[in-house]
Write a protein that binds this DNA or RNA. Structure first.
Lengths: 412, 412
DNA sequence: CTGAAAGCGCTTACAG
DNA sequence: CTGAAAGCGCTTACAG
């Protein structure tokens, strides 16, 4: 310990010239100071320019922290050498694939620990032709809806020893395609597409161009909330039925005049929830006039803006349905800001039942979806035997009446 | 197209025996049905058992979707062959590293597109000795605090073309160590540790055992909200100062009797915020009695439970400080449930300014932190020139007075 | 500008 | 049970 590790030699000569095991630190864990990370570039030590493009060497003449050059990873070869066994044997004990003589096993384990060996996952992925990670693509992790689902996904992934690569598209279709390409390059074991897709031919085609070869090569894809055009394992919340059930409940409360705060109609979820709601109203002979449907972005601010616009147009409805809880949160604040009492003057309902809506004042009426569980399900669906035919798991929504809804003041 | 691709041969013979270029589909994108993903296992086609451990071949005699065997990724070699150039040339045009004759370049590009080639990121990482991903470790993605930070991180990572591998520890120290090991194996370009660390010797040692060799080998680590024991690039919210400023503001409102709702004292953030608050009170000659400090988990439910416990003990304070907004949300609901008016009977303040607190009723007084920006900063810090000495970016918190705080009824 | 070949760090038949 | 060696799919000096 405390020895300089030589500058990483060029690739050609590396294997032969690398530091003999004897120069390695004696113990990767039992360091005297016990303080955790102590390796730190010393103050004034500017890296020496080595010329060319080779790796730089940390210079300096003062007290030198252990390890000098950057990029010098311990390899299996190093471990094998120190344990005085073959590469194959070292690999075997570390993977527990075959029985290995007890003493050799012990030596390998000791060497690995002493050198603080960490296998190179890329090399393993290459040799095994399979990786330990999955990809999760959603619109925005910071949206409580996706955050809850992501929680379920990461939890399920952890149980399988998988790492999740997270991508937020910020609702940009092009970015989604890019991410799929990256995940494909990573040879992710599975790609999870979470959230509404876009109703767009060109986009569907580019998606297919990426996804198609991916599944053909053995990749698994599973989606959540996205049924059109993708014949893959699916977790499908019953948006249409949920919205319809909500409509009937609201009708039952006595409402006849409705307004809807919606997101972009290019999103399948919008189409389904709006359609289900409208159809259920129609069955009761109630129609939804177009100027009572306000379209904004699928965000809290979108909900705020939509509610404000609704007020501007003249709030004729006694009940407002925001297509997502997140929009409903914005709407509730807008109503409050404009002095519109909820549920005194208007009732308000959302969809999703994200955790926070219980803490709103008043607590929000909504259609509850088991978000975290849905996340676990997509993950598990993607990990099923690929030979089995694709499956759609339908998740029913449950109408939860809370305090933002009440009977209308004077039922029409 | 529509041709069977042969079962993937065993590794030994693969290179020579693989399908000649002529058998490849003509175009990866211009598929007739235009429907996106169409590759899908046909209904009744059970995979034939091929015996041994080799890859399975999708059997079936009916109409067969394009692509048969799983695991058959298109390689650079396939592209080179189809373009009738060398491997090296194909690599060069795809990477744009060197000038390549226009016609060859064109052929390579065409071949790559026709075969829907996706480079194997693992092979690239191995050959280049660098990967395209970073690791993000936090306590819980679904917590709005971490969700906001994660948003900043993923956004900044995207700008650098990096993928982020997300891990939630659910506040389990052991899990954190495990994730670092995995990220190290992935040769993540950087590891971001977000959120309070644990005040635990043994844990610090295991962390060091993983992190140490990682940075020694050139890995970058940056942390957010975690100063003890880690001498690495740091984004440090001024918890102590923020809490102190909040205390002074509250004092200025006339409060003299305080209570604090806190998380586990093993978290550094707890120590700092509680300490800063208490010290500022002390400077004003106000002391915080131990039975007015309630410890619970750092969650919404923890806040609810802590507030409830406070009420049970006899709510003597006129002002309650919840160490995080998330706890404050729970506390607010508990107060409401128990008929304690906020701010009429007690004032309540939080810390962090997560987006939702603006929509609470009443809106929460808190110490604002630029969460998303903090996420961007850790990411960028981790990407700096590794030769430069480590840096600590201090993020001041700003006291934001909203409606949960007021002057006490009868100032003592 | 282009190609043959070595090397990245593993795993795993194959042959003792 | 163990080791030598091929192969995974790339990149990149090196030598035309």
């Amino acid at each position: 310990m405390g020895e300089h590790r030589p500058e990483r030699p060029t690739r050609r000569t590396r294997a032969k010239a690398s530091t003999p095991a004897a120069d390695e630190p004696e113990d990767g864990t039992g360091r005297a100071d016990g303080s955790g990370v102590s390796t730190h570039r010393t103050g004034g030590a500017r890296p020496r320019q080595t010329g060319g493009t080779g790796p730089q060497q940390a210079g300096g003449t003062g007290p030198q922290p252990a390890g000098g050059a950057a990029g010098a990873h311990v390899t299996l070869q190093d471990v094998a050498r120190r344990a005085e066994v073959s590469l194959a044997t070292a690999s075997r004990v570390l993977n527990g694939t075959t029985q290995v003589r007890a003493d050799l096993k012990e030596r390998v384990l000791a060497a690995a620990s002493e050198l603080a060996y960490a296998p190179n996952a890329h090399a393993q992925a290459l040799a095994r032709a399979s990786s330990q990670s999955i990809g999760l693509i959603c619109h925005d992790v910071s949206d409580p809806y996706f955050a809850a689902i992501a929680r379920g996904v990461t939890r399920a992934a952890a149980e399988h020893g998988l790492l999740v690569m997270l991508a937020s598209t910020f609702r940009d279709p092009a970015r989604e395609v890019d991410y799929i390409a990256m995940l494909r390059a990573q040879r992710a074991r599975a790609i999870l597409l979470v959230g509404s897709g876009f109703e767009d031919r060109a986009w569907e085609r580019s998606m297919g161009a990426e996804l198609d070869p991916y599944v053909r090569a053995g990749g698994r894809v599973a989606v959540l909330s996205r049924h059109r055009s993708l014949r893959v394992d699916t977790v499908q919340p019953e948006n249409r039925e949920g919205a319809a059930a909500l409509a009937r409940t609201l009708l039952g409360l006595g409402h006849r005049d409705f307004a809807v705060l919606t997101g972009p109609r290019t999103l399948t979820t919008v189409v389904d929830r709006l359609g289900g709601f409208r159809d259920a109203l129609a069955e009761a002979g109630v129609s939804l006039s177009d100027d009572q449907v306000v379209e904004e972005s699928f965000t809290r601010d979108g909900g705020y803006a939509a509610a404000t616009e609704l007020i501007r147009r003249g709030l004729r409805a006694t009940c407002v349905f925001a297509l997502t809880d997140v929009m409903a949160i914005g709407a509730l604040s807008a109503f409050r800001y404009h002095g519109v009492d909820v549920p005194g003057q208007v009732s308000l309902a959302g969809f999703d039942d994200i955790p926070i809506v219980r803490d709103l004042v008043p607590p929000l009426t909504t259609v509850a979806l088991p978000l975290e569980e849905m996340g676990e399900r997509v993950m598990n669906l993607a990990l099923r035997d690929p030979a089995r035919r694709s499956r759609v798991e339908r998740i029913p929504g449950e109408v939860v009446l809370r305090a933002t809804t009440a009977a209308p003041r004077r039922p029409t």
